[in-house]
Design a protein around this nucleic acid. Structure first.
Lengths: 140, 140
DNA sequence: TGTACTGTAATAATATCAGTTACAGTTATG
DNA sequence: CATAACTGTAACTGATATTATTACAGTACA
């Protein structure tokens, strides 16, 4: 899995943490530990999915529009990283004479698909608010 | 996730499928669709974990020693790909002044750890025999 | 002794990922 | 209106991960 999912979650939690729910890409990037351009790319997806609003120009930036307890990591996973569980490489060859070689591809595909669904439902149970709560717990 | 897990599962299923449970790295590689050297590397791990026996020299190769219905994909996952769910890159910086920036790392780590445990328990429920069964089902 | 294997490391080719730069477009503000 | 502070997006670079390939030492059978 690439880390856009992590960046997205971190950004949303950070916005939820700020009293006014607003920050520029540079402020977010600083908190996340990456570059502003990368944050903007991730936030662009979150905007299209309706979780944040953006304002260009001076004094602009990103604002959380969704309720922190209504957005789950599952929602974020689906828009940022769906399908990342399955390796890009697949074994077997549908044209193989052998039953194993010719069908393994499909069988493994199904196994990874159900595994991914499980993963999603695990993420579905965690909201942005939950994450923020965990942050505050360990930040004694 | 890299595909050594897939190669390992495919190889074991292939051995379980063969009447005598034996094949050379080249025969397996041909069925899997990769190179013999890569198969040997994967099988080396499986041998050290006790799932196959190997015999060097002429007429040698790999033989399945475990019961196909006693080995789960979870077993294979643990030896081949454990920890592959978590992205290598992590956000945040423990030295950050901000509670979010300094603790996100740990919180996300925990989230990925429990997600991985879920994934494992999903794989625990699937045996090599199950996979072979699914292969035979779709191989009408 | 020669042939057919495994074991393992090294190297090369390719793909993916993250960092960086660049610049056009947008908006607040003096 | 001009400037500064932003976003949006693409292009490029460097780093890292992944897969393919080659090579060769070691082992066992015939």
């Amino acid at each position: 899995m690439n880390s856009e999912f992590t960046i997205a979650v971190h950004s949303l939690v950070y916005l939820a943490y700020l009293p006014d729910g607003m920050a520029s890409s540079e402020a977010i990037a600083d908190n996340v530990g990456t570059h502003a351009a990368r944050v903007r790319k991730v936030m662009s997806v979150l905007r299209k999915s309706g979780y944040v609003a953006t304002r260009e120009g001076a004094g602009g930036g990103y604002r959380l529009t969704a309720e922190p307890n209504a957005v789950t990591l599952g929602d974020i996973y689906r828009v940022m990283a769906q399908g990342s569980l399955m390796p890009s490489w697949c074994s077997g060859d549908p044209d193989s004479d052998c039953v194993v070689g010719s069908n393994m591809n499909e069988v493994m595909f199904n196994i990874f698909c159900t595994a991914e669904k499980q993963l999603e439902s695990h993420f579905n149970a965690i909201t942005i608010r939950d994450v923020l709560g965990q942050i505050r717990e360990c930040g004694c």
